[in-house]
Structure formats: C-alpha cells, structure tokens
Design a protein around this nucleic acid. Structure first.
Lengths: 104, 104
DNA sequence: GAATCAGATAAGTATCTGCTTATGTATTGA
DNA sequence: TCAATACATAAGCAGATACTTATCTGATTC
C-alpha cells in the first residue's frame, strides 16, 4: 500500500491491462482472463500484486472472487504528481484540459 | 518515451528521488550525487533511464551535463490517470483539493 | 461423499534490473 | 601536452520479477 508498491504494480503492462479491464466493472479472475493469453496462476499472481498495492479490492462470492478497482487506489500517485504541478503548463492544471490538449 | 517507459522509470525509488531533486532545479550528475550513497556509474545509468523515458532533459555545458525535469514528461501519466477519474471522489477532481483532502 | 470448479500457492526457471569495477571519451586547466 | 575532471559505457554478477507446471484449498453440484 505504499507509493512504491503502486508504481511497481503499474510498471507491468499486463497489470495495467488488468486494471483497465476492471475499471469498466468488477470481474472475477476467470472472466478477467478472457481475451488474454495468460495462465491462471499468472493472473492470480498479478491480482495479488495489484491487491497488495491497494489498487484493487476483492470480495469472495462462493467459489468466485470478484475483483474491482479500489476507488482510492490511485490517490497516492495523484498526490505524488501534485508535487510536480509546477512543471505542467499552467493551462492544463485541470486534467480534463490536459487530455483535450494532448489529443490535438 | 512510452507510457511503459515512464512507469518503469518511476518504479525505482532511487530514480524518483533523483527526479524530485531535479524538480527543485537543474543539476549536473555530480551535484545530484551529493547526499546520496550511489556510485557515479549508477547515477549515470539512472539518468539514462529517466532521459529515455522523457522525464528529464540534458544539456552539455563543457564537461558538465546539466539535467533538468522535462516539463512535459509527466503528461503521459497524467493522461493515463484521467481514464480512471470516474473512480476518484467527485470532490477531488482537482488535484489541489485532493492534496488538501489527503493531508487531513 | 466424490467429482468438479475457482482460485491460491509452491517450486523451478529464464529473463530483467540495478549494482559493481574497469575502461573509454571529451573537456579543462596547469 | 599532460594530468585531472565529468560523464558514459562495457562487462559481469546477485537479486528481483514474471512466467511455467504441479499441487493445494475451499465451495459447489451430482
């Protein structure tokens, strides 16, 4: 649950992909594997890393385990980024505007 | 210069420390080492990773090399984070408010 | 209760990472 | 011009990481 845990968890592209899938709604581990070429243990291990980083929450439902994004999981990184706001262009202090600007 | 490069570069605590030092002003590689127990080659290698991720900019000045934060270096991550804004509490859409909230 | 299923865990392995020491390349100044 | 300085690069190594196969736990269903 530290800043370091979060950065390390997100440093892996497979875990970012899993995280993005969960952002569209909670899923169990098997459903998460659909469309991904990844073994069951590998998925379980990735989910453990995301869980230990505080990025996802788990909920046992019978023999299924539902995973979902922890709404507060990204706050530590958001806070980290505020330290460097001075380096962002003034006009894109607001992330909405940043996104628009980058899409141009 | 990819999203993956940036996350991987920031996943190392030593590199985040270097990045934070540079956020207070440009420095050359030797000055950066002051106060850190890190060899000269290790510093050089870390700086190369940060540079290749687009997080810092370099400028030769005689036999010194000045390093400074790339103002646009964090934009890819900022953009990445906007994908998950739905999971942030509405009140902290603005990072300023997020910071205040977390400091309570 | 036995078979099945979801998922976690263990153990082994190939690859990656961050460090080290040694050396190379410019630049500077005596 | 020659030594010193600032930094980069090469090569090697220990530990970390992400994967694999095999096995285990617990819940479900027949």
């Amino acid at each position: 649950m530290t800043e370091n845990d979060i950065f390390r968890a997100l440093a892996d592209p497979t875990r970012r992909e899993i995280f993005e899938k969960l952002a569209h709604g909670g899923l169990n581990a098997s459903a998460l594997r659909e469309g991904m070429t990844i073994s069951q243990p590998a998925m379980s291990q990735h989910l453990a890393v995301l869980r230990e980083a505080g990025l996802v929450l788990t909920q046992r439902r019978g023999r299924f385990t539902n995973y979902e994004v922890n709404p507060q999981g990204l706050q530590l990184i958001a806070k980290w980024m505020t330290k460097y706001r001075a380096y962002w262009p003034a006009r894109i202090d607001d992330l909405n505007n940043l996104l628009k600007e980058m899409d141009q």
